[in-house]
Simulated scan of single mutants.
Amino acid sequence: MWVPEDTYAITRIDLPRAGTHGWQVRLQRRGVKYGKFFADRQLGGPREAYAAARQWREEVVEQFAAEEAQARICRPSPRNQSGVVGVSKIRIIAANGTEYWFWQAAWCPSPGERRSVKFSIKRHGDRQAFRLAVEARRDGTGA
């Protein structure tokens, strides 16, 4: 039997009892699932169904790449209490029950990579810890 070389996200489905033969494409991006079945009978055979499945997969992957190329614009959320994107006040409770408060700056230096740094309110005071977090977020450094 003929076996295709490129089967990324493409699976062969053969269920003789159900009369189902074809190729299934399944992809997932940011929690959204994309899938489509390409039946041999409707498309003229296994090779034709595979070609259609591969073409559809390529179109979906190109769509992902186009979305990735668009710059994400960060806007303050209504949940944002600091007024600065990527800067938040956080509370950490130690194992002994002691509560510590920080201003945290978070940013992404490159796709898929996340950095953050915390500034102690106890050590720096609320206003200075906030200023340090805003500066760290703006500069994209933990210094």
Rank of each mutant, 00 (worst) to 15 (best):
V3P: 06
V3M: 10
V3E: 14
E5I: 10
T7L: 15
T11H: 13
R12N: 02
D14W: 12
P16C: 05
A18G: 08
A18Y: 01
G19S: 06
H21N: 14
H21V: 12
G22K: 05
W23Y: 10
G35C: 09
K36W: 08
F37R: 06
D40H: 07
R41F: 14
R41V: 12
L43G: 00
L43W: 02
G44W: 01
G45M: 04
G45Y: 10
E48D: 12
A49G: 04
Y50T: 09
Y50S: 01
A53V: 04
E59K: 12
V60I: 15
V61R: 03
Q63M: 09
Q63T: 06
A65C: 10
R72M: 02
R72C: 00
R72D: 13
R75K: 04
N80F: 05
S82M: 03
G83T: 00
G83S: 00
V84F: 09
V84D: 02
G86A: 03
S88H: 07
S88G: 13
S88K: 05
I90N: 00
A95M: 08
F102Q: 02
F102Y: 15
A105K: 01
W107D: 08
S110V: 11
P111D: 04
P111C: 01
G112K: 06
E113V: 13
K118F: 01
K118I: 05
F119K: 01
S120L: 10
H124I: 06
F130V: 02
E135P: 05
E135R: 13
D139T: 14
T141Y: 08
A143E: 14
A143S: 10
A143C: 09
